[in-house]
Design a protein around this nucleic acid. Structure first.
Lengths: 242, 242
DNA sequence: CGCCGACTTGAATTCCTTCAAGTACGGTGG
DNA sequence: CCACCGTACTTGAAGGAATTCAAGTCGGCG
């Protein structure tokens, strides 16, 4: 993953995939003030209860959102990859209801929320693209509720892997057959509502069945058809973007 | 629950709670074409894969969204009550990725998606209120991922009850201490990722601990403080609306 | 009155967790 | 370059929470 030279190109590319922008839209985006930042892994970008005034575009690296129970349980509710807009939600909701943290070293661009909001009001095509992005996020949350609520451990993991592969590919970050996972097995466990021990066993089971091949965090999906079936994965919920 | 006389008053009240509308906004809403409908329980309002061209406002009764696994498992991903806008998402996403069904007899108002979309473009305050509504829905989905992924059976049910009570109250539909559940224990099971049998046992356990009192589907929350603690319920994620 | 869906209860089973050791690897400092 | 250290990963065995299977009971409605 080489670092993209231009945050605007990444953002425009992303939004264009969600809905066509015209030249004036692109000009307006390129005029956005912003600041760049590099952060190590496990660095918090947003804290629950905070009142952030900036919106974050992930340029490089990976991040996740998570919530915690009072008992200390941790649930990751989404993973994010380069090109993802993090917390569009703080445009409209004053307080963050969850944490966002990097899971690998990351480069970021921060935009003032007020400027994005101005674009929403003045540029209908941008408003529409941002709407789509938010609605797709919501669709992914629904699929995660299903995943965690109604699939068994092996399918859950398989589904998570399929989703990661499909989104990666849709975002133009590489192929879906072979990729490096940025997250630990513990983080996979927190995302799928299981324990790290059982994640480990299920990864081995998927490999033993010939669905995937693993070398450290490198994953190869050996047989997409069988894998999709085992995962109960139907990419329709990603709405051909993400 | 007496039926509201005016769908517009319900919609305007709802949006006003999300963000202040001015007189022109209200006039624009009252000019929306629409059709009223009454449906029995277990009537599908939206089918997965469909391309609906209307947006539905629930006037009276209850509904839920659900997704299914290929193996036949069913996961309810949200419950809806009078005043809720169902599937704002089809304004922007062509195909429904889940089903929506009534769980009790319901009265509905259907608005053409194109007219709502026009309001989004021309009336910034309405756009903002709809954004908030959608973002709150997304926040609720995240909480459900946490609920299903990381809480034990008793807490899950307790949390579901607390959320239902809090949303009911926020929507001005009555108190939070005592209410009638519209859903069967089977539906509670489908929402919390458990079996109906175990839902039954956990409801009895909650009653035995003096947290709730039940008479058929009538629920009284006997001790909100203890119940909130047992449920690990913090209403912040509802963002003071819903 | 009788039927059907919703609810209730018990017993056996299973999937996943918990607990407990260990191993492999990448990074750091000597 | 190698010893050391911490984190991530791996594996086994025991325990537990929730499911499954199997019978009921209750209550509303035709």
């Amino acid at each position: 993953m080489t670092a993209p030279a231009d945050p605007f190109a990444l953002l425009i590319g992303k939004l264009n995939r969600l809905g066509p922008l015209d030249a004036a839209d692109e000009t307006a985006i390129r005029a956005l003030p912003h600041r760049l930042a590099s952060e190590p892994a496990n660095h918090h970008l947003v804290r629950e209860g905070a009142r952030p005034t900036e919106v974050c575009l992930l340029l490089d690296g990976h991040a996740c959102r998570y919530k915690t129970t009072r008992g200390g349980g941790r649930q990751i509710v989404s993973f994010h990859m380069p090109g993802d807009l993090l917390d569009l939600q703080q445009l409209m909701l004053p307080r963050a209801d969850h944490d966002i943290v990097t899971i690998s070293p990351a480069r970021l661009a921060w935009f003032p929320a007020s400027d994005i909001k101005r674009l929403q009001q003045n540029r209908p095509a941008i408003n529409e693209a941002l709407w789509r992005d938010t609605l797709i996020d919501a669709s992914i949350y629904r699929e995660w509720v299903l995943n965690v609520g109604r699939r068994d451990a092996k399918s859950r993991i398989a589904h998570m892997l399929c989703e990661f592969a499909a989104r990666r590919q849709a975002a133009g970050l590489g192929g879906a057959e072979r990729f490096e996972l940025p997250m630990t097995q513990e983080q996979i466990a927190d995302a799928t509502g299981m324990t790290a021990v059982h994640v480990n066993r299920m990864l081995h089971a998927l490999a033993a069945e010939g669905l995937i091949a693993r070398d450290r965090r490198l994953v190869e999906i050996v047989d997409w058809n069988r894998m999709q079936r085992a995962a109960d994965f139907d990419p329709a919920y990603l709405h051909a973007a993400a």
